[in-house]
Amino acid sequence: MTYVKVCPLADVPADGALAVEVGDTPVAIARSGEDLYALNDICSHAEVSLSEGEVYDGTIECWLHGSCFDLRTGKPTNPPATQPVATYKVKVEDGDVYVSLGSDD
């Protein structure tokens, strides 16, 4: 599994998200409490950036229509979104955030 360095951990806001790119893939790095998550940054309903939304209660909310996505699974927790967004493996080493898009990269 290949991990790509995407940003310093200090750049990810507390209980917020940061947009990064891994190759051509837009990724939202979200921090909820002490936990860090990586998921596709494009809302499955409206194709806008999820990283611009709010992070709370283990979810990220799309700013446009209010759909929330579970940070662990990418599944929507309320409408209008019905399709999940992809989630990715994330780790922190030496103060930097690394993301893997999957086992085939």
Rank of each mutant, 00 (worst) to 15 (best):
residue 5 K to F: 05
residue 5 K to R: 15
residue 5 K to W: 05
residue 6 V to C: 00
residue 6 V to A: 01
residue 6 V to M: 01
residue 6 V to F: 00
residue 7 C to T: 15
residue 7 C to P: 03
residue 7 C to Q: 04
residue 8 P to L: 14
residue 11 D to E: 15
residue 11 D to S: 15
residue 12 V to Y: 00
residue 12 V to R: 01
residue 13 P to G: 13
residue 13 P to T: 14
residue 15 D to F: 13
residue 15 D to T: 13
residue 15 D to C: 14
residue 16 G to Q: 08
residue 16 G to N: 11
residue 16 G to A: 11
residue 17 A to N: 09
residue 18 L to W: 04
residue 18 L to H: 04
residue 19 A to I: 06
residue 19 A to Y: 07
residue 19 A to V: 07
residue 20 V to G: 01
residue 23 G to P: 11
residue 24 D to P: 08
residue 24 D to S: 12
residue 25 T to V: 15
residue 26 P to V: 03
residue 27 V to R: 04
residue 28 A to N: 02
residue 28 A to K: 01
residue 28 A to Y: 02
residue 29 I to W: 00
residue 29 I to N: 00
residue 29 I to A: 00
residue 29 I to P: 00
residue 29 I to E: 00
residue 30 A to T: 09
residue 30 A to D: 08
residue 31 R to A: 12
residue 31 R to Q: 13
residue 32 S to Q: 10
residue 34 E to T: 14
residue 34 E to Y: 06
residue 34 E to A: 13
residue 35 D to A: 15
residue 35 D to H: 12
residue 36 L to N: 11
residue 36 L to V: 15
residue 36 L to A: 11
residue 37 Y to V: 01
residue 38 A to C: 07
residue 38 A to R: 05
residue 38 A to H: 06
residue 39 L to T: 03
residue 39 L to D: 01
residue 40 N to G: 11
residue 41 D to R: 05
residue 41 D to F: 05
residue 42 I to C: 11
residue 42 I to W: 12
residue 42 I to L: 14
residue 42 I to K: 10
residue 43 C to E: 10
residue 44 S to H: 05
residue 45 H to T: 10
residue 46 A to L: 12
residue 46 A to Q: 13
residue 46 A to R: 07
residue 47 E to Q: 11
residue 47 E to T: 09
residue 47 E to S: 10
residue 47 E to R: 11
residue 48 V to S: 07
residue 48 V to Y: 09
residue 49 S to G: 12
residue 51 S to T: 08
residue 51 S to G: 08
residue 51 S to M: 08
residue 52 E to K: 12
residue 53 G to V: 05
residue 54 E to P: 06
residue 56 Y to I: 10
residue 56 Y to V: 12
residue 56 Y to K: 13
residue 57 D to P: 03
residue 57 D to V: 03
residue 58 G to Q: 00
residue 58 G to L: 02
residue 58 G to P: 00
residue 58 G to K: 01
residue 59 T to S: 08
residue 59 T to I: 01
residue 60 I to E: 05
residue 62 C to G: 05
residue 62 C to L: 06
residue 63 W to T: 03
residue 64 L to P: 02
residue 64 L to H: 10
residue 64 L to K: 12
residue 64 L to D: 11
residue 65 H to S: 08
residue 69 F to L: 03
residue 70 D to F: 07
residue 70 D to R: 10
residue 71 L to G: 05
residue 73 T to N: 09
residue 74 G to V: 07
residue 75 K to C: 14
residue 76 P to H: 02
residue 76 P to I: 01
residue 78 N to I: 00
residue 79 P to H: 09
residue 79 P to Y: 10
residue 80 P to T: 08
residue 81 A to F: 01
residue 81 A to K: 00
residue 82 T to V: 14
residue 82 T to A: 11
residue 84 P to H: 01
residue 84 P to V: 04
residue 89 K to A: 15
residue 89 K to L: 15
residue 90 V to M: 09
residue 91 K to S: 07
residue 91 K to I: 06
residue 92 V to A: 11
residue 92 V to D: 11
residue 93 E to T: 14
residue 94 D to M: 06
residue 94 D to L: 06
residue 95 G to V: 04
residue 95 G to N: 04
residue 96 D to R: 05
residue 96 D to K: 09
